Simulated assay, not measured.
Amino acid sequence: MIEKLVAIKDRFEEVGQLLVQPDAMSDMKAYSKLSKEYKDLEKIVKVYDEYQNVIDNIASAKEVLQTEKDEEFREMAKMELDELVPREETLEAEIKVLLIPKDPDDQKDVIMEIRAGAGGDEAAIFAGDLYRMYDRFIETKGWSKELISLSEASSGGFKEIVFGVSGDDVYGSLKFESGVHRVQRVPVTESQGRVHTSAASVAVLPEVDEVDFELNMKDVKKDTYRSSGAGGQHVNKTESAVRLTHLPTNTVVECQDGRSQHKNYDKALQVLRSRLYEKELKKQQDEIASDRKSLVGSGDRSDKIRTYNYPQGRVTDHRISYSVHNLPTVMDGQLADFIENLRIAENADKLQDGSLE
């Protein structure tokens, strides 16, 4: 572990020198990449410096105990060791977590898709509730959101809604939300007061560009059609909506949110690229972990990941057997507690596998 930390510190100092070169900002893309690397390495180096200092002080205190005859000095050395040894253990644990390989997609923006599942009208209403929950969470994080497409349900909520989210560490936070979310409550349409169970699926796709995923445009069929829904006369007069079909996989993406066909095409292409990238990524992950899936990292949409029980005011994440009894607060966008516990579980899972950089 020490060898890895020394190598990281060397690289940190090297990147620091590169950033202050006179021509460093001539290539802003490269400069931005170096700045991000410097920031990431700095977190590890700061902990490593403190760890190294603690180890040196422990060695000095032990030397005092071995060589010093004065009881006052020996007592001071013992007191120092009582503080330093637990700190060494804490820092070691921190370093192990910091050395866990980072998911290269964690810093990416995302495309989120929420779809009503089993449960009819109530499932669509619940999909709308989930969208509001994420909308408020996104607002608290200071991220930005862009609507891509939606299909409203007649009784409220959405059959489907797709939107983009951009900001810092977006995928790293929201990737845990992929899966089936289940709600247990009395629907507004229920006259007998019986509790029903409905579901909605959430997909969180890391945004990708041509560098991340090469898409052969010969495999993509483009169709245009008139948008439906709000938009006035413009909706009825122009074919601004775009439908893209990836012929080899029969993956279909539609976008009709913008008035410009060109903008809708760009958005649809981004979603298509992300969906195909996710499929390829999942295929690779399944091959790598065919004998054992990660505790929270599979993101399988068929997994029921969380239940929102309204009668009991409880929200339970089934992947980590974690429950809270503040459902209204969670539905108001307070998801940080769940995300933090899921991150801890994921890191513990990786540590168990011995996954250090």
Rank of each mutant, 00 (worst) to 15 (best):
K4D: 01
D10H: 09
V15A: 03
L18N: 00
A24D: 04
A30M: 06
Y31F: 15
S32G: 12
L34I: 11
E42Q: 15
D49N: 15
E50H: 10
V64P: 00
L65T: 05
T67M: 10
M76R: 09
E80T: 12
L84I: 14
L84R: 11
L84C: 14
V85D: 11
E89R: 12
T90Y: 05
T90M: 12
A93E: 00
V97A: 15
V97R: 15
D103M: 11
K108A: 13
D109K: 08
D109R: 08
M112Y: 03
I114H: 05
G120H: 05
I125D: 08
R132A: 04
I138K: 05
E146R: 02
L147F: 08
L147Y: 04
A153S: 11
S155K: 12
K159D: 07
I161Q: 08
S166C: 06
S166W: 06
D168P: 15
D168S: 13
D168Q: 14
S173W: 00
K175C: 07
R182I: 12
Q184F: 07
V186A: 11
P187W: 07
Q192R: 11
A199S: 15
S201H: 02
L205D: 07
E207K: 10
F213R: 09
N216M: 00
K218V: 02
D219F: 08
S227F: 06
G232T: 11
Q233K: 12
T238L: 04
T238C: 00
E239G: 04
V242Q: 14
P248R: 02
T249G: 03
T251N: 06
V252M: 13
V253I: 14
V253S: 05
Q256M: 14
R259I: 01
S260T: 06
Q261E: 15
H262Q: 08
N264G: 03
Y265I: 12
D266N: 08
L269M: 15
R273C: 01
S274P: 01
L276P: 01
Y277P: 07
Y277R: 06
E278V: 02
E280G: 04
Q285A: 08
E287F: 10
A289C: 09
D291Q: 14
R292W: 00
S298G: 02
I305F: 05
T307D: 03
P311N: 02
Q312T: 14
Q312P: 04
Q312F: 08
D317N: 02
D317C: 01
Y322I: 10
V324K: 00
L327A: 04
I339S: 08
A345Y: 03
D349P: 03
L351F: 06
Q352V: 09
D353H: 06
G354R: 13
E357V: 01
